[in-house]
Design a binder for these strands. Structure first.
Lengths: 201, 201
DNA sequence: CCTACCGATCGGTAGG
DNA sequence: CCTACCGATCGGTAGG
C-alpha cells in the first residue's frame, strides 16, 4: 500500500467531531471512535495524544476561525447592519457545512480541562464583546433597533445553534434558501409589516 | 427525626436535573448525584429505580407540560399572533425558572433508551406540528410574515434554548424585562423600522 | 441508609 | 498497527 499519504489524523479528528456531535463527548468512547475509523482503540494513539486533545483541537480551530472572520468584517467599509449580516451568514454556513463547529459551539467545550477551558472562554468572550460593539454602533447609527445588545447577541447566536440539527440538505429548501429565510426572520421579525402594533411593549 | 415527610425523591430528581444540565447526562455519575443529595450512591436506589429512569421522568414531565399548554392556547379566542406570543412566553419562562426543562429540551433526551426515546420524539413532533399549524393560520390571517413555517419554528425554538445559560437573575435586566426584549426582537426583528430595505431578499 | 462488592467498560500503555 | 493488559470508575445489587 504505497499510495499517496492520507491525512489520517484529520480523518480521526472529523470522525471524532461527528461522534461528539451525535452522542456527546462523554458518551463517545475511544472504542467508538476506533470503530468509526477502522482501527483498534490502542492504534488511535499512534495518531493522536488523547481523547481530550481531540476536543481541544476542535474547539481551538473553531474559535480561531471565528475571530479571524471578525477581524475581516471589522475592517470592511460597509454599513454596520451589513457587518452583522456578514457575521450571521458565517454562523449559518458554518453550522451547515462544518461538522466540527457544532461540538465546539453547542456544548462540548465545557468538557475541556484547564487551562484550555479558560483559554476557550476568553476567546469566546472576546468575540462576543466585539460583536456587541458592532451592535452598539448599529444602534447609534439608527440601523439596528435599540435593544439591550447582550440580549440581542445571545438570542441571535442561540437561534443558529441548532441549525445543524434540523437542517437536512435534501429537504424542500436548499442551504442558500434557508440562509435567506433565517436572515429575513432575524432582521424583520415574525410580524407582518402591515400590522399595527399595540401590544408587547 | 419524625419531622414532616420530605419529598426526597423530588429532591433527587431536581439535583439530577441540575447535574445533567451542567455536566451532561453521561458525564454525571450516580456518585456525583449521591454527593449532591448527601447519600451513598447505593442508597439512591431506595428512592429511584435507575439513572435512566430519572431522565425518562424529567423528559416526560416536560413534554406533557408543553402539550398541555398547547391545548390551552389552541382553545383561546385570541388573534393568532397572540397565541404565538403566549407560547413563546411559556418557553422563555420555563427556560428561566425550571431547571429540569433544560435537560429535556437541549440535548440530553437523546440518551433515552427505547421505547422512551421514540415516545419522546413523537410528543415533540406533535407539539411542533401544532405550533406550525398556528403559524400557518397566522400567515393566512396576515398577522405573521409569510415564511417557511418550519424554518421559523426551529429558529424561534432554538433562539430560546440557551436562555438558561446566559440569563443571570442578578444582572442588569430582570426576568420580565428580558422576556419583553426577546419578544420584541423576535416579533419585530433587528432592523430599525425607519430603515429602507434593499438587501437580504 | 450503610458496607461491601459485582461485572462491564473506560482512557490509555507496554511491547513487539 | 496489533494483542494483551492496566488501574480507575461506571451503574447497580446483596445483605443487613
Amino acid at each position: 500500500m504505497e499510495k499517496v499519504e492520507k491525512p489520517k489524523r484529520q480523518h480521526i479528528l472529523e470522525s471524532a467531531a461527528i461522534l461528539f456531535r451525535d452522542k456527546g463527548y462523554s458518551a463517545t468512547s475511544m472504542r467508538d471512535l476506533a470503530r468509526a475509523v477502522g482501527l483498534q482503540a490502542s492504534s488511535l494513539y499512534n495518531h493522536i495524544e488523547s481523547k481530550e486533545k481531540l476536543l481541544q483541537e476542535i474547539c481551538l480551530a473553531n474559535a480561531l476561525k471565528f475571530l479571524s472572520m471578525m477581524e475581516k468584517v471589522e475592517a470592511m467599509d460597509i454599513p454596520v447592519a451589513a457587518k452583522v449580516e456578514q457575521l450571521l451568514r458565517l454562523h449559518i454556513r458554518t453550522a451547515i457545512q462544518d461538522v466540527t463547529s457544532v461540538t465546539s459551539f453547542n456544548d462540548e467545550w465545557r468538557h475541556l480541562g484547564e487551562p484550555y477551558l479558560s483559554d476557550f472562554k476568553d476567546m469566546r468572550r472576546d468575540y462576543e464583546q466585539r460583536f456587541i460593539h458592532i451592535l452598539r454602533q448599529g444602534i447609534e447609527a439608527g440601523e439596528i433597533r435599540a435593544q439591550e445588545p447582550q440580549v440581542v447577541l445571545y438570542t441571535l447566536f442561540s437561534s443558529l445553534r441548532w441549525l445543524y440539527d434540523w437542517f437536512q440538505p435534501g429537504r424542500r429548501l436548499s442551504a442558500p434558501d434557508v440562509e435567506e429565510e433565517i436572515l429575513n426572520l432575524l432582521f424583520y421579525g415574525l410580524r407582518c409589516s402591515s400590522e399595527l402594533d399595540s401590544e408587547s411593549v
